[in-house]
Write a protein that binds this DNA or RNA. Structure first.
Lengths: 149, 149
DNA sequence: CGTTTTATGTTAGCCTTACTAACTATTAGC
DNA sequence: GCTAATAGTTAGTAAGGCTAACATAAAACG
């Protein structure tokens, strides 16, 4: 359990925690918080969703998403109305104001990240790219087989 | 704002979020949750701390840490008693049971991470190492100058 | 010294996000 | 058409975060 490989993985995990912790501060300074930014970015970049689907994408249970949507609706960040073909479902979409707010928050976060990593060498940027590819691959593998067959 | 560099950084941020989200599930399945595991690991690997120091290390305010410590104390994970040289401060230390619990949780998480990254190539592991170095460097720079002079 | 200031934790009260359980309403199946 | 299943909501609880207000111990200082 103490191979060099394990050590790297563990240190990477820890570094990721620290990086995201400092980003949280940036996100929250900019008005809306992690879960909201995340759900909104799904609505903006993936498209309108039903509540259940949005909850599944975000990895939370429907009641949690229900409350989140209600709060964002109250702030005018999203619109929600019954689906045409199924009156049980609701169609949640980012409002224009929501889109603008998301873009601004995204920009702020990106600026903070770029500032944090401003002295990264080209080789390090390349290394980040490799790591992103690795992680993306892992996520895809995982989502292909959610449960053992 | 749309340089390749920015794109990589943004995708890295997103990948980190997803990685940690799946790790949260592993942590919580194993008994205690993120903030507890994190605080406890400071006590185990860095050593006993006062409440204020521990709060600062963890990036939370003292009342938050006070409650966390109280809960962990109730579960027998940590010991706390007044400092010798200053009766205002308390000295918080991991108990034997806390150490064991942390080690087990750590092992579980590491196994899950290794499983997630099981098909990483040597080059990718090397890339992770580079990224860890980059992030660590950034954190150190940041902690050296907490506020502008 | 004694008084005032500063430092350290704690308590109380609030918010957000997460959960489960129980409920309503709509759709689908038989 | 009655029953099943499905989609969301409501209610109640817990964890973790915050600020404001407080108690107490130590330090500073006249």
């Amino acid at each position: 359990m103490s191979t060099p490989r394990a050590t790297v993985i563990e240190r990477f995990h820890h570094a990721a925690i620290r990086m995201l912790r400092s980003m949280r501060a940036v996100d929250e300074a900019g008005g809306f918080s992690g879960p909201r930014a995340s759900a909104l970015s799904v609505l903006v970049f993936v498209g309108p969703q039903s509540l259940g689907d949005l909850a599944a994408i975000e990895g939370v249970k429907p009641p949690t998403m229900s409350r989140l949507v209600k709060a964002m609706q109250a702030e005018g960040l999203v619109d929600a109305r019954p689906q045409d073909h199924d009156q049980r479902q609701i169609r949640i979409a980012a409002s224009e104001r929501g889109k603008r707010a998301l873009m601004k928050a995204r920009e702020r976060r990106l600026e903070a990240l770029q500032d944090m990593l401003r002295d990264a060498s080209p080789a390090e940027i390349q290394a980040m790219e490799k790591v992103v590819a690795l992680l993306t691959r892992s996520f895809e593998r995982r989502s292909q087989k959610p449960e053992a067959p």
